[in-house]
Nucleic acid binder design. Structure first.
Length: 472
DNA sequence: TTTTGAGTTGTTCGA
DNA sequence: GTCGAACAACTCAAA
């Protein structure tokens, strides 16, 4: 019997996979395929993808054949496979980034009269077109979006993995995940990633269990990078190893009544994920251009040394450096610290937010075009729903407030390990004797601050006033 | 059409 | 040490 093709994209799971359910219902053997293309960018993401594909391949083998691997443009590759196998249909789950949508349109066009094409909306709680203001325009502010998106009620119940399907290679060569060269070789910088993460559906469910256990305390502890107060589900959600429906319902049902309020803050984050994708869908220039147009005139300094100091975690501000080093080592950074380091790059160093966004896309295992772009625009103050520009994070205060003992800093900036808590967020304030006693001389063993935050803040506010004046 | 209340995550200054 | 106001007015979204 001729097969149907299941084109896996950012939905690398078998449970609660609506597109897969539709393919199974076609009643034919399923040819599962992954096509690696130019959208598979970002070093840390590619590392994750390798293992997620491997896990999926193993899970599919239980049903017959594993995952066929190809690379190239899906709109070229898939029609060829349709011709070779006589497949009667192609199923896939839709994506909402501009390039991914263009890819879908090209595929639909290429397959137009050759076979059925079924794009299924599966990765968001609400489709971007289904949440609009009364005047028919897209929401720009989160809270009204969230209210409107929540109005229809709870997300759909997740569906279990279908048990009744058969996969086939349809006589094709399977291809090789290794040949995609997703893993780093020289040097192998992925040691910290391997220690931190378990990509794939099984790893995702383990992490989801952990997330359920912290959900009740989420509202209270989510801002503390020194604790394990966040879900760490972002990469699993990005690759679709979990659906937002599954996360929502598992957290909801695992949390006792007394903890529902704390968990609500976590569930709300799922709507932030929807909202970012929604913004990118309706404002496709989001990754590149400031949505508040006056920011195109902003006098960025764009200094290469500043950017490098930030990337390497050598700014002299411990909480910033801890975050950047956590990112480099593990492919992830605590959300509170992401805001601190982003504010520092954009407002203290006056480096364009796009440079920070590029770095994050390359180094985060959860790198997601929509979340990343929307969040950087938010921090930079140029998004539609942005923090006021004068809201400039003070890295010392933030450190004292959210890493009160300095444990987070000590973990990621070991030079400062022996410094007492009093100085850990501002080590330059320690007398030289105290520095020596802690085995760290500022300016030698750990950098002096690359900028003075007070001066940098004044300069940032001045620059902001300048573009306001220009546009007045 | 006009009005009105509200807007994820902050900091600093001066009383 | 604590508290409220200023930062700078703006835009959004619904009534």
């Amino acid at each position: 019997m001729t097969p149907v093709i299941f084109w896996f994209r950012r939905n690398l799971r078998l449970h609660d996979n609506l597109a897969l359910r539709a393919a199974v219902d076609a009643g034919r053997p399923i040819l599962p395929i992954y096509v690696s293309d130019a959208l598979d960018a970002g070093g840390a993401s590619r590392w994750w993808l390798h293992y997620s594909l491997s896990a999926l391949d193993a899970a599919l083998r239980d049903h017959g054949a594993g995952l066929a691997i190809r690379s190239g443009r899906p709109e070229d590759v898939l029609p060829r496979i349709v011709d070779e196998t006589g497949a009667t249909a192609v199923f896939f789950s839709r994506r909402y980034e501009p390039d991914a949508r263009a890819q879908e349109r090209a595929l639909e066009k290429a397959l137009d009269d050759r076979c059925d094409v079924h794009g299924v909306d599966d990765s968001l709680i609400r489709h971007p077109k289904s949440v609009m203001t009364q005047s028919g325009t897209p929401y720009k502010v989160f809270t009204p979006f969230w209210k409107a998106a929540s109005r229809p009620g709870e997300p759909e119940e997740p569906a279990p993995k279908p048990s009744d399907f058969e996969t086939t290679a349809a006589g094709l060569e399977s291809g090789d995940i290794d040949a995609l060269e997703l893993l780093p070789t020289r040097p192998d910088w992925a040691g910290g990633l391997r220690e931190t993460w378990t990509p794939g559906e099984d790893g995702a469910f383990e992490r989801l269990e952990d997330a359920c256990s912290i959900a009740a305390d989420y509202a209270e502890q989510r801002d503390r990078p020194d604790l394990e107060g966040t879900s760490r589900l972002s990469p699993h959600l990005h690759f679709g190893e979990l659906s937002p429906r599954q996360v929502w319902h598992d957290i909801r049902s695992a949390t006792p009544a007394s903890g529902q309020q704390g968990a609500a803050a976590l569930l709300r984050q799922l709507y932030w994920r929807d909202f970012s994708t929604y913004l990118l869908y309706h404002f496709p220039r989001l990754p590149n251009e400031p949505l508040r147009e006056e920011f195109a005139q902003f006098p960025w300094t764009d200094d290469a040394d500043s950017l490098k100091a930030w990337q390497q975690g050598c700014t002299g501000y411990p909480i910033v450096d801890a975050g950047m080093r956590q990112l480099w080592a593990t492919g992830w950074m605590h959300n509170r610290v992401r805001m601190i380091v982003a504010s520092f790059l954009v407002k203290d160093l006056l480096v364009p937010w796009q440079a920070g966004a590029d770095w994050f896309l390359d180094t985060l295992v959860d790198a997601d075009l929509a979340n990343n772009s929307a969040s950087w625009q938010w921090v930079a103050g140029c998004g539609t729903d942005a923090a006021p520009y004068f809201r400039i994070f003070n890295p010392v205060l933030q450190g004292k407030k959210f890493d009160p003992m300095g444990d987070y800093v000590r973990r990621w900036v070991p030079e400062l390990e022996r410094l007492p808590a009093k100085f850990i967020q501002e080590p330059w304030k320690a007398e030289i004797d105290e520095q020596k006693a802690a085995n760290v001389v500022i300016g030698e063993d750990y950098p002096a601050p690359v900028v003075d935050h007070g001066e940098a803040r004044d300069l940032a506010l001045q620059s902001y006033r300048a573009i306001r004046k220009q546009n007045a």
